Simulated assay, not measured.
Amino acid sequence: MSSELLAILDHIERERGVSREVLIQAVESAMVSAVKKAIGAKNLENIRVTIDRTDGKIKAFMDDQEIKAVDFGRIAAQTAKQVIIQKIREAEKDVIFNEFSAKIGDIVSGTVYRFDKGNIVVDLLGKAEGILPKREQSPRDDFRQGQRVRAYVLEVKKETKGPQIILSRTSPFFVKKLFELEVPEIFEGIVEVKSISREAGERTKIAVWSKDEKVDCVGACVGMRGSRVKDIVTELQGEKIDIIRWSDDLREYITASLSPAKITEIRLDKKEEKAQVIVPDDQLSLAIGKHGQNVRLASKLTGWELDIRTRQEIVQEKEEAKKARAQMTLDGVGEKVLDSLIEAGFDSLEKIKDASIDQLTQIKGIGAKKAEKIIEAAKERLSQDNESV
């Protein structure tokens, strides 16, 4: 039985990838209980079982004294079968967990095994099953059973039934990884992906930059006659991809991020990381995009809040602001305080009248007494205006 046991463990190690040492330790642990039953011992702590790693001989000890009167071969045959399967399964789970934990942030391939309440169970080359939740599926995805699928490893959780491998096809990093696989210059580090924003199934914007002046970062990503980006678009079922040249010049970068719209002027507020982008009238809808998608993705890509305006809108807003300000003249309230009130959203006498002292004291430069005076002044002014009418 001794040599046969080692042969079985060696076979399992080769076939299942579970460490032989882990298995031997599992059998030793399992046999402690069996030896206890065989000799009628009450305490497990003073019993120890060892298996020789070379010849497979089994020895048992109680209080460091070897136990001689037990048929270890028979015990091994009876107990190893029952307990070793459980230990092997646990070890296999650990192997799978460790293997796929190392793949978090990578793309894996598999086939659609089955569907479960909108989620897709993916067979990962027979090694494990991955879950592609409905929320992580692109609206364009339409897989059938047995179909090959590629996905991004988002997370690996330890569960009682085994590792739960969460996959994603909506993550922007899925697209980033696809570019790494398709564009050698990105994989080699010559071209760097600086930022990426995505609305899965609709559009992705990816900003790239080349460390080598001789290498065109956008051209490298597009490929000869668009071959590289076409392969990625095919994988994403036709999702649109905008490849943008990254620049440390913010105005240049924002202009590129709003492509294909043409930009007239960009006004930066570096403190708030906001930018007012002025476009010609005929470019407004293009800059904003369908349902605001273009400006939304550009904001995510650049990390700046982008406000798209035409010159006509700005002029109109200024005129309206002047009118509103003229109507808000209050006794004892200076220009700066009025500007602060308008900026905080209190842009009418009605709003100031209905405001609480607590609300106004949230505005810089306005204390409780000042807030009380402003509210009273607004009420008085409105009362005067009503009387004059």
Rank of each mutant, 00 (worst) to 15 (best):
D71I: 07
K177G: 00
T79W: 06
E272N: 15
D94S: 14
E213T: 13
Q145S: 12
V215K: 12
Q86G: 12
T160F: 01
T204P: 02
I47K: 03
N119E: 11
R14G: 03
I244E: 12
I266K: 08
S33V: 05
A102V: 08
L178R: 00
A321Y: 14
A69L: 07
I120Q: 04
R148S: 10
C217W: 01
K290T: 13
E45N: 15
T54N: 14
L306D: 04
H11P: 00
R135E: 15
W209I: 02
P133W: 00
A261Y: 02
I363M: 09
G289V: 01
E319C: 04
L6K: 01
K270R: 15
R150L: 04
I58Q: 03
L382E: 03
I196A: 04
R311L: 10
T50D: 10
A34E: 02
K274A: 11
F173Q: 13
S3M: 06
Q384P: 02
Q86P: 06
G201T: 12
T310L: 01
K290H: 13
R381F: 07
L341N: 12
A41S: 07
D339I: 05
F72G: 06
D248Y: 03
F173N: 14
Y113S: 15
K262D: 10
L297C: 11
M62N: 09
V333K: 03
A69S: 14
L382P: 00
D64K: 13
E252Y: 08
E350Q: 13
G118H: 04
Q283P: 14
L258P: 01
K318I: 03
V108C: 11
V18M: 09
A371Y: 11
D216Y: 15
W246L: 05
A378P: 00
K59V: 06
I375T: 05
K134V: 11
A128Q: 01
D52P: 01
G226L: 14
K271T: 14
Q82A: 14
R135H: 13
K274L: 06
Q283R: 13
K68S: 08
S29T: 15
E188Q: 15
G146W: 14
D141C: 05
L181K: 06
S168W: 00
A321F: 14
R198M: 09
G110Q: 02
E252R: 09
